[in-house]
Computed example of a mutant assay.
Amino acid sequence: MAIPPSLVLTAASVLNLISSAILGVLETRGIHMEYSKFFDASSTKIKVGSRVGMLLLYTPAFLVDFRFLLLKSAITIHFLKRIFEVSFIHKYSGEMTLDTMIIILFSYLFLSSSLIYTQNLNQELLEPWIDLKYPGIVLFLIGISGDFYHHFLLSKLRTKGSKDYKVPKRGLFELVICPHYLVEILGFLGISLISQTLYSFSTTLGTALYLMARSYAAKRWYISKFEDFPKEVNALIPCVF
């Protein structure tokens, strides 16, 4: 059974239809909107340049959907980068079990689709009082570029055909053993600021907690494999954890 439209949506639909019809009738009767070929240069009304005017006409409508567009773009770029890294950057030494692959596959699929679906539902709500999407863009770009850089450094540790592990150096590897997790968390925080929904922030928190545990396990693994592993190097956050 279909959900009946709300009273506000119905009223808006009727208003839109009536106003469009009225404007159409006025145009046929010679009462035009004053732009383009129908602009009256002798008019005493306040005027703006056509380019500026048209930009001002289109921009607000674009910005209404801008947050949704940004979120979809950020998610697309995030996973496109991962596909690129898997294809051309990473060097793998082992295999993956089928059950692990299935779990991660559906986790990522659910993550991306649920973030987009939730944002779509929130489009009908009022914009947040404090707009954080622009700081979110900055954080996302820092996160995704930092993640790529540190994955590139990891790929340089292993020559072609080699399966040996080495203690990573350079970049933030001098401070933490998993800087790629740290900047990935920053990237997800950027996505949360772009989205500004409770669901996106809970997703980032869950991701951060998982990557904290993963980085702690990674540090223990490095300590067990390398006797000269520097104990002062933290797992994820410099001088903290």
Rank of each mutant, 00 (worst) to 15 (best):
D40P: 06
D40A: 10
D40H: 04
D40Q: 08
D40E: 09
A41N: 08
A41L: 12
S42E: 09
S42C: 07
S42W: 08
S42L: 10
S42P: 13
S42I: 04
S42H: 08
S42Y: 09
S42T: 15
S43W: 04
S43Y: 01
S43C: 08
S43Q: 00
S43V: 02
T44C: 02
T44A: 04
T44N: 10
T44Q: 13
T44E: 08
K45R: 15
K45Y: 11
K45F: 10
K45Q: 15
K45D: 14
I46H: 12
I46G: 07
K47D: 12
K47N: 05
K47W: 01
K47C: 07
K47I: 02
V48K: 09
V48M: 09
G49L: 13
S50T: 11
S50Q: 13
S50N: 14
S50D: 09
S50E: 12
R51F: 12
R51V: 10
R51D: 05
R51K: 07
R51M: 09
R51A: 10
V52S: 00
V52L: 15
V52F: 06
G53D: 02
G53Q: 04
G53R: 01
G53H: 03
G53Y: 00
M54Q: 12
M54S: 12
M54R: 14
M54A: 13
M54I: 11
M54G: 06
L55W: 07
L55E: 08
L55V: 08
L56G: 11
L56C: 14
L56I: 03
L56V: 04
L57P: 11
L57S: 13
L57F: 12
L57H: 12
L57T: 11
Y58P: 00
Y58D: 09
Y58S: 13
Y58M: 14
Y58I: 14
T59D: 02
T59I: 06
P60A: 04
P60M: 00
P60Y: 04
P60N: 05
A61N: 11
A61V: 02
A61E: 10
A61P: 00
A61C: 02
A61D: 10
F62T: 03
F62M: 12
F62V: 00
F62D: 00
L63H: 03
L63W: 01
L63Q: 06
V64K: 09
V64Y: 08
V64M: 11
V64T: 05
V64H: 07
D65N: 10
D65E: 00
D65C: 11
F66T: 06
F66E: 06
F66S: 03
F66Q: 04
R67Y: 04
R67M: 01
R67G: 02
R67D: 03
F68S: 03
F68G: 01
F68C: 01
F68D: 03
L69M: 09
L69C: 10
L69V: 10
L70G: 05
L70P: 03
L70I: 02
L70D: 06
L71N: 14
L71S: 13
K72N: 15
S73Q: 04
A74T: 07
I75K: 03
I75E: 05
I75Q: 00
I75N: 01
I75V: 01
T76G: 14
T76C: 15
T76L: 15
T76N: 12
T76D: 12
I77D: 02
I77W: 01
I77E: 00
H78I: 05
H78P: 07
H78N: 15
H78D: 12
H78S: 15
